Simulated scan of single mutants.
Amino acid sequence: MATIKSVKRWFWWHKWTSLICTAFLLLLCLTGLPLIFHEEIEELTEAKKELTHAPDAKPVPVDEMVKTAVAHFPGKVAKLVVWDKEHPGLVNVTVGDSPSSAYQTDKYVAINAYTGEIEDTPVVQEGFMWVMLRLHVDLFAGIPGKLLMALMGILFVIAIVSGIVLYGPIMKKFDFGMIRTEKSSRVKWLDMHNLLGIVTLTWATVVGLTGVINALGDVMLYAWQQGQLTEMTAPYKNAKPLTGELSSLDDAMKIVQQREPEMQPYFVAFPGTMYSSKHHYAVFVRGNTPLTERLLKPALIDAQTGQLTDMREMPFFVNAYFISQPLHFGDYGGMPLKMIWALFDIATIVVLISGLYLWFARRKSSKEQLARMEASYNLTATI
């Protein structure tokens, strides 16, 4: 009896967690499919630009590139400088209304690092891929949307675990992968649902867990700001606001490069932005291997004196967030892995649709059975 109760309990968990999150998961799978191939789609839809410079050209000072970007958008201030990994030799400068202004008002300037000339001023907040990304990440609802997606991801993982518990005892009686073609349509769909569910098990678990981590990225960033970053900037808690011209960003880069010669720059956050304090440049560097290039190390440079004040490894939960991003989209193994990710994504869509079909079919079957019982009762009562 205890076993029957346990099975019923797991079935209840599997049914309701699946039903609650299915619509959201279908949306995530459908929007995730083009996002897997976002680089290839962008190459096809965007005009290609070749970066040209003299063979013996040296990089233009970062300070000059920042001045160029700010001059291109009068009234804006520099917020971020990002070294483009996909296009070596290209530096992207983000400018905004203020260091802490919302990203929706930001402008972007892509500069040739060897000529100092502006290559492009991309508008990233429009187009098909932008819509797919926003639907996938937060449903255009900001932080509440991300938290909702995180909850749906947790329910998805529970549905996977409960499905495993239910699938094990069932398969003791049948061969693995069996499809009972001689049975009703509902039974055939049930077998297909179970088969695809178990085949995509590992992938779905990985994508589900990394999706939850990605959705909680803002929460993790806030925890880092309130924890490690606050600790690193504690001596500046009562410091006077910055005045006058800031120290050289190029000098700051040299200091960090001397401290970590085996690492390369990823991005620099200006004072007052969400990645820094009100008194520091935050220079983020990364490794050179496929794994370490996802792990960032921040260095804080006093923006008034140009001195290095602190440099530490990021907390484990932030590193987990950085690693989960490429893992979620299969974006670390080239086209073969992307194709595998896409096939599993499509198989998961079939699992979700078949699950909905089975639920509706079961409800219809139960109603028909109840109608037959009532008809039988009424017929008996009239005899």
Rank of each mutant, 00 (worst) to 15 (best):
T181H: 11
E42G: 01
K278S: 10
T181R: 09
L308W: 01
M149N: 12
I36A: 08
L358I: 09
V318M: 13
L343D: 08
Q258R: 03
L352R: 02
T233Y: 07
N319A: 09
F360I: 14
A78E: 09
L190P: 09
V283G: 06
E46N: 06
I154P: 03
L166T: 10
V124G: 08
A141M: 13
T68A: 11
G330I: 02
E262G: 05
S277I: 02
I255A: 03
T305C: 00
L291M: 02
Q307I: 02
M129S: 04
L19M: 10
T305M: 00
M192S: 12
G96V: 04
L155G: 07
I41F: 04
V351K: 03
L28S: 05
G153S: 02
G272R: 00
C21A: 11
V81T: 13
K173V: 06
I41D: 14
T382M: 08
T305I: 00
F128E: 06
S324K: 07
W13A: 14
L209A: 05
Y357I: 14
L35R: 14
P261T: 11
Y275N: 13
G330L: 02
I20F: 05
G208Y: 04
R372E: 15
F322G: 03
A239K: 04
V60L: 01
L196Y: 15
I346Y: 14
K188Q: 15
D63L: 07
V206P: 00
W224S: 07
E119W: 02
K48L: 10
D310P: 06
K240G: 00
E293C: 01
W203F: 12
P290C: 10
K48H: 07
I4F: 06
H279L: 04
P169R: 04
P261I: 04
K188E: 14
R259D: 09
Q257T: 13
W189L: 13
E40Y: 07
R286N: 05
L155K: 01
A150L: 08
T52V: 11
I20Q: 00
G89W: 03
A239T: 01
L343K: 01
V165K: 07
R294M: 05
V137L: 11
D310G: 09
S376Q: 15
A78Y: 12
D218L: 14
I111Y: 10
H193Q: 13
L221A: 13
S247V: 08
K58W: 00
D345K: 10
H280T: 09
H136P: 03
F267P: 03
T210Y: 03
A150E: 04
D56K: 15
Y377C: 06
F174L: 15
P235G: 09
L379S: 11
W189N: 15
F322H: 14
A252R: 04
P315Q: 08
V66G: 05
Q125H: 09
S376F: 12
K173S: 12
Q325K: 12
T309P: 01
L209G: 00
T121D: 06
